[in-house]
Amino acid sequence: MTNHYRYIIFYKPYGVLCQFTKDAPTHSTLKDYIDVPDVYPVGRLDWDSEGLLLLTNDGQLQHRLAHPRFGHKRTYWVQVERIPDADAIKRLQTGVEIQDYRTQPAEVRLLPQEPQLPERNPPIRFRKNVPTAWLEMTLTEGKNRQVRRMTAAVGFPTLRLVRVSIAHLQLDDLQLGQWRDLSTSELQFLHNFSKSKSFPPKTNPL
């Protein structure tokens, strides 16, 4: 491990774009929160999603983590409109069709109570007399707006989406809008975990 590399986790608020350049005047960017040069997000969160974001200037690690073969788990707390029944949960677990793609099996459960999270600004839109529920969803893939498309496909639109973990990395006591460097143990685990994932062998062209 080289000392000049930085490995950062950030609790991204709602409405923040996962980029450092400001090309949308109505949205904040990572630059408004993180004053560290030359780090870039590993993967992304949509502007209307919240939660854990990993950033680094270690290009090799970034490439490995972003590669589909890596298949690391990402866990989300998802507030949906109405209360999903057992059939909807089963469909989310086994895979649903989103456009021309069928999602991979996922770990999905209905949370017994609302998780302790900071208030969202602005708040979600509530509809009178329409209940909401929270799901915990753990995926190993990251298609564009996948969680939202999955819950919509089974009839329960996403109202709020918070990523709470990436592999072994957790939000823990990190506050909304705060970032910190990874601990030595977190970084060692991350490197060991990424090295344990093998890439497909290269083949010579005919």
Rank of each mutant, 00 (worst) to 15 (best):
S196Q: 14
Q178N: 14
P131G: 11
G59I: 03
T138S: 12
K31Q: 15
R74G: 03
A152G: 00
N192V: 00
K22V: 01
N129H: 12
P201S: 11
Q178A: 15
E97F: 02
L117F: 10
E114L: 09
A86S: 15
A153I: 07
V78F: 01
D100P: 00
P112R: 10
A167C: 11
I124C: 13
P205N: 14
Y101K: 10
Q79S: 05
T94C: 05
H168D: 13
L187N: 07
T2E: 15
R64I: 10
L55N: 07
P157A: 09
G71S: 13
N121F: 10
P105E: 02
R163N: 09
F156D: 02
L45A: 02
V147K: 02
R74M: 07
F126S: 12
R91G: 03
V154F: 05
T158P: 04
L53V: 14
P122N: 06
M150K: 04
S196F: 06
G59A: 13
G43C: 01
L92W: 06
V96F: 02
V36C: 03
L17Q: 09
F10P: 06
R148I: 02
Y101C: 08
E186C: 09
L55D: 03
K22A: 12
I83R: 13
Q113A: 13
P115A: 07
D38F: 10
A153E: 03
L55E: 06
P131N: 06
Q116W: 07
L182K: 06
I124R: 11
F156K: 04
V147Y: 04
K195Q: 15
D48L: 12
R82H: 12
S185K: 13
G71N: 13
D173C: 09
G95V: 01
E141Q: 11
P105T: 08
Q116D: 15
L161G: 09
L182W: 06
L169K: 08
D58R: 09
L45Q: 01
A88R: 05
Q79L: 11
S165Y: 09
L176P: 08
G177A: 10
Q93N: 07
C18L: 08
P84A: 11
I166Y: 15
Y76I: 06
P201D: 15
L159Q: 15
Q178P: 01
Q93P: 00
I83W: 07
I124M: 12
L190Y: 08
E81N: 08
F70W: 14
E119R: 12
E119Q: 14
P37F: 02
Q104H: 11
H4N: 15
L169C: 11
R91S: 11
T75F: 01
K143P: 00
R148T: 01
V39N: 00
E136G: 02
Q99K: 13
K12L: 05
E119S: 13
R69L: 07
G155H: 09
A66L: 14
V39L: 03
V96C: 03
V16R: 10
R44Q: 01
Q178W: 07
P122G: 09
G59V: 07
R145C: 00
Q175I: 03
